[in-house]
Amino acid sequence: MRLAIDTSGADQAMVVLDGRRLLAAEDWVRSRDDPPVLTRLDALVKRAGGRPDDLDGVAAARGPGSFTGLRVGLSLAAGLAYARHIPLHLVDSLPILARRATGEPATIALRDAGRAEVYAWRDGEPPRRMPTDELAGWLPSSARVMVEPAGRLAIWSSGHAHLEIPAAQRRPLSAALLDSAIWTFESQKPLRYDEVQALYVQPAAAEERRRKASS
């Protein structure tokens, strides 16, 4: 039994799987008065008919995403993996987002990074942060774009609004997470604990000041 968790964005999800088979899934939207994620995790594993001892792998989304969400998800995953001596994997968040498209995964995934910036990913490249007004030059005209939050492409780059996959053609995050988890567990190498690192949508303010001062 394996567990995968994505707490990087506003939509969050957790899945429990056995091989390629889904045992239980939960989707929720981040909110201020959420219960601790561990409360959901405990309920989900019970619903899957499992116990902590049954876990033999854990994966967590590494971002880009929010400070708090990623810290919670990665800390839980690291604690579980360590306590049960099971493999720990980190999964890039934007490819998961791309898999929310029904049918083929989207070729482009964009996540709002705040401050008029966006985190952008396309297959075969690492994600990159860019000002929204650079999107027009970066987006291929044939792209299928998955955007979070949905509907934002019309605001960021109105000429490309038609490229965004409409809300009706989105699957729950947990469905995309399941696909990503299967691929990750089957083909990726586990991490060491000192490699556990999140990618945040924005750098820390103090680090940015320092980078500007030194350049």
């Binding site: 601790p36 994620v37 561990l38 995790l41 405990d42 902590p52 876990l55 708090t68 810290r71 919670v72 800390s75 839980l76 995953a77 690291a78 604690g79 579980l80 360590y82 306590a83 049960r84």
Partner: peptide, 15 residues
């Protein structure tokens, strides 16, 4: 957050 979640994940996993 990091300590609280790592600690509780360990505790949960080891009952």
């Amino acid at each position: 957050l990091v300590g609280v979640n790592v600690a509780q994940a360990i505790a949960w996993a080891r009952k």
